[in-house]
């Protein structure tokens, strides 16, 4: 990595033994993960394997039952940590966008900088307009979210997270709620973020996209990270039988493009 000149810690996120259960259902049974600065880690796994839960545990929206989360080498699961301060530095974008329907797009984006960081309204709005323009949404600044297409709403949600200038961005299946023709515009935005060096953890079903963009792919199964590695290895030569079967099912359901299918684990 070319991070020599960067004074920040090279490890942005470290998870140690994260456990989480909902009642009797153990969803996460000890997750360890290290994400370095500028890395893009993709989480793949069957629906219900705990990808969303894991991301929600990282920003403590879901309290963990056991284990530790470190951000920039500071443990945020320690008692007395101010979680509001931690969350400023971790952006998260949800599958269902969760824009605030009673606010314009501009207010959605500038709310947190103003209220959390204390940026004056004029500057927060100017910054927000700049960001919206960068993602092709300058014309939508004054609109309410329900006037936007799904793709535009999801891009606005990404811009809202970026306005806080997070050190880490978590994306939870951000294209799953979109019509197929709108998926590309959102994936394009994420590609651009990756090129800009944004550190990201992405839960996704878009295997072609994961393969392009990920520095590392983690396969979640049975509450654990069963297998992880560079995308080429995971997609071409998975060592675990369950990974192989998962990818097989994905191919059969047509989620993997023809190009990826050619290098599928069955060859």
């Amino acid at each position: 990595m070319s991070g020599a000149a960067v004074p920040e810690a090279p490890v942005v996120l470290r998870l140690e033994g994260i456990r989480k259960a909902f009642g009797k259902l153990e969803v996460l049974k000890g997750i360890d993960l290290v994400v370095e600065r500028h890395e893009v880690v993709c989480l793949i796994g069957a629906s219900g394997s705990g990808k969303s839960t894991l991301l929600r545990c990282v920003n403590l929206i879901e309290p963990v039952d056991a284990g530790r989360v470190y951000v920039d080498d500071v443990e945020i699961t320690a008692p007395k940590v101010n979680v509001d301060r931690v969350r400023r530095r971790i952006g998260i974008v949800y599958q269902a966008f969760n824009l605030f329907p009673h606010m314009t797009v501009l207010d959605n984006v500038s709310l947190a900088p103003r209220k959390v960081l204390g940026v004056p309204r004029a500057k927060a709005e100017a910054d927000a307009r700049g960001l919206l323009a960068r993602f092709g949404l300058e014309e939508k600044a004054a609109e309410y979210p329900d006037r936007l297409s799904g793709g535009q709403q999801q891009r606005a949600a990404i811009v809202r997270a970026l306005a806080m200038e997070p050190d880490l961005l978590l994306l939870d299946e951000v294209t799953s709620a979109l019509d197929p023709e709108l998926v590309a515009e959102v994936l394009g935005v994420i590609r651009e973020l990756a090129r800009g060096g944004m550190t990201m953890v992405i839960a996704t079903h878009e295997m072609g996209f994961a393969r392009d963009i990920a520095s590392r792919v983690c396969f979640l199964d049975g509450g654990r990270i069963l297998e992880e590695g560079p995308p080429d290895r995971i997609f071409r030569h998975p060592t675990e039988e369950r990974t192989r079967r998962f990818l097989q099912r994905v191919i059969e359901s047509g989620r993997l493009g023809a190009e990826q299918a050619a290098g599928s684990p069955t060859d």
Partner: peptide, 25 residues
């Protein structure tokens, strides 16, 4: 609840989330 979660995820405090996101709606 996802509205509150979205607000809290941005770093808004519990009070700020109520004040700016939940109560107006």
């Amino acid at each position: 609840p996802s509205q509150d979660a979205a607000a809290r995820s941005l770093g808004l405090s519990r009070f700020q989330s109520l004040r700016y996101v939940v109560i107006p709606q």
